[in-house]
Amino acid sequence: MNHPITLTVNATEYTGTVEARLLLSDFLRHDLDLTGTHVGCEHGVCGACTVLLDGAPVRSCLVFAVQANGRQVTTVEGLSTGPRPEQMHPLQTGFWEAHGLQCGYCTPGILMSIVPFLEENPEPSEAEIREALSGNLCRCTGYQKIVEAVQMGARLLRESRV
């Protein structure tokens, strides 16, 4: 059974027809070609597929695309204002400068978890950052550099707003 859907992804409206069983993660990657959203486990554990649904971070592997009908989705592609390094989101700059990634598989999910976290808590402690990262697995970095990247990103974000 196919279902017509209309949704907004990164401020662009898309209309399409989807099978009910199509996961939002696969809709984003295969139908919209937004391959920044990564898929690691498809059971909610790794966090690589995290996107914002109406502004709140969720696992896109645990939402059906048909459920996003009429909603706003933000993916990692929606963070920067353009393709040049200086157009990156301050948190992305933090990851770049502080070496917050190695293979980068976990990075989009971490960015999409931490962007809303910093909106609510612009000056987090290290413990709060570690807690906010606890829903995202990284197999490369040992997390230390990620924590430092978030600290730098938080600072850059605060500075960008004064």
């Binding site: 966090g47 995290t50 649904l53 709140a56 971070p57 969720v58 696992r59 978890s113 906010a132 829903g135």
Partner: peptide
């Protein structure tokens, strides 16, 4: 209970 990303849904 789980993580904020899970509790949001």
């Amino acid at each position: 209970i789980a993580h904020p990303q899970i509790r949001n849904r």
